[in-house]
Write a protein that binds this DNA or RNA. Structure first.
Lengths: 232, 232
DNA sequence: GAGCGTCACTATGTATACACTGGATGCGGA
DNA sequence: TCCGCATCCAGTGTATACATAGTGACGCTC
């Protein structure tokens, strides 16, 4: 594996996991030394992260990790709605019936009991997304969704899933999978819309609650506007 | 301006204009020498182009310019439909009435007579797109659309716009702009859908016609599948 | 004491040198 | 003549050295 790939993978994981929080300054020399690579591959990694929108050049001399606030989340979900509704509809038209009825069955019997159950559920969702991507067979769509999902990882960390919401989410996914299996594009798209609406509402509510009850842990930049995602 | 930016801008233009056709091998040393920069900034430029999907690593040693075939165009328009329908709808909800009624007026009076008229029309469409982006105010959406538009530049080069199609396109744009100005999100989205459907049909027809009447100018790769867009 | 200008340092941007891998070519043997 | 192996080379991946610009601090002047 190339050094630049390792640097990218490591930084991506650290940003998504919150180890490198929003506003963290990423100096090239410093990060290169820390990750044990030279500046050249590290610069490539930073370039990819910037193109993903996870870091931004705040000024000519300082690159920082971007943050996500409620407005960002709303924006993300606007794009996500557009892309996933289309994807669900297209998957309904093109997908393998057996694959999606099997997934619907899995959602129907998903257990959220223990920590393990929830981990299994998240893995199931990943397989579900992958199945849709494969059925749609559109690289441009998959690529656009990949960017959105990259950001969603951080969003999920901000929002605690309540048990009731998780249970509802399972049922929503089951319905989407069933609709795709049945070849019902309209239902698949509308069910996706409903699911994303509910997911967004839950996230925003969860953030609202935590931001009003806890102190903000991310220090605000001293001056200037919050770094926007440049998206290359 | 940075050397890497110049290299990126130059290569982008050459790929979009067809100077560097699909399948062209882009060696680092060779291109760096040609563009008068060193390999370091050139590599950064190639990385960005790869992330855009305009070049792809065919093997571990050779980077080539990607191609666009009819299937790619269909895929592009699937994503474009999803994003632009959403964008049009959101612009209708948020856009400045005056801006879009003014644009609708411009479309109503657009002249396609001379070469100049068509150039003006394409510039008008660019301003229209920019107005929608600004009204929607969603960086993630704008960024996703930017990628799609980057590819569309090449698609337009493949398809000859017939005068009748151009005239219809003007009217379709006028309707979309009017719908946005009127705050009619549904009409804006549906009119966008219709417009993209017609545009795609025209492009595919145009390509079909030229590919069956003319010889293929792009040499097929000797072996292996056509390079797919990796999209980083 | 405050404000502005200058100087130095640090971090980025670029160039180049080195390392390594993958492929092609040529030679030898069957 | 054809196949297989070894060697050479071309080109990428990485490290480092050099150029340059921006920032901060210090000192001078008003």
């Amino acid at each position: 594996m190339r050094a630049s790939d390792r640097a990218y993978a490591t930084l991506l994981d650290e940003i998504q996991s919150g180890t490198l929080g929003p506003g963290t300054v990423l100096g090239e020399v410093e990060q290169a030394a820390r990750l044990g690579v030279s500046r050249t591959p590290l610069r490539e990694a930073l370039g990819r992260l910037a193109s993903d929108g996870l870091v931004a050049q705040q000024s000519a001399r300082v690159t920082v990790v971007t943050g996500v606030d409620a407005d960002d989340i709303r924006e993300l979900f606007e794009v996500r709605r557009a892309l996933e509704e289309s994807a669900a509809g297209l998957a309904a038209a093109r997908g393998d019936v057996l694959v999606f009825s099997a997934l619907a069955e899995e959602f129907a019997h998903a257990s959220l009991r223990a920590e393990q159950g929830r981990a299994d559920y998240y893995a199931l969702i990943q397989r579900f997304d992958a199945a849709i991507d494969a059925s749609v067979g559109n690289d441009y769509l998959t690529s656009a969704l990949r960017t959105i999902r990259t950001h969603l990882v951080r969003v999920r960390r901000l929002a605690r899933d309540k048990p009731a919401r998780l249970a509802a989410s399972v049922e929503e996914h089951r319905l989407i999978a069933s609709a795709i299996a049945a070849g019902d594009a309209e239902l698949a798209a509308h069910a996706t819309h409903v699911h994303l609406h509910n997911a967004l509402a839950n996230i925003l509510e969860s953030i609202d609650a935590s931001s009003s009850s806890e102190t903000v842990t991310v220090p605000e930049p001293v001056e200037g506007p919050r770094p926007r995602k440049a998206h290359a």
